[in-house]
């Protein structure tokens, strides 16, 4: 069972604002999914290598040759708040 505090902590890590109702619902839904997931805790997995990749590839490298960058107008075209040739954001303050 996942606690309300944990829901809030995880939501903060993921920068999601949850309503009261969502916090309650999320606690229940996550708990039911986690109950299912926790069945893998019963497996004997000592000495088993983790797979982060199914591919047999190594050392895929790109030559250090410049490619054209985007024109600045295009780079900023999708910005919700372009400002002074850049992407406007509220100043960080305590966030970080």
């Amino acid at each position: 069972m996942i606690e309300r505090d944990q829901v809030l902590h995880v939501a903060r890590l993921g920068r999601l604002k949850l309503s009261e109702e969502e916090v309650e619902r999320m606690a229940l839904e996550l708990s039911s999914v986690l109950d299912h997931i926790e069945k893998i805790g019963e497996l004997q997995l000592d000495g088993v290598e983790p797979t982060s990749h199914v591919l047999p590839l190594e050392n895929v490298l790109r030559d250090d040759v410049p490619r054209a960058s985007l024109p600045r107008d295009r780079a900023l075209a999708e910005a919700p708040e372009p400002a002074g040739g850049g992407f406007g954001v509220p100043s960080p303050g305590g966030e970080g």
Binding site: I37, I40, G41, L43, L45, V48, E49, T51
Partner: peptide, 15 residues
């Protein structure tokens, strides 16, 4: 480890 690490190992076993 309990979640991600184990899941990666289950992945190995399935493969």
């Amino acid at each position: 480890e309990a979640y991600y690490g184990r899941a990666q190992r289950v992945r190995t076993k399935i493969a």
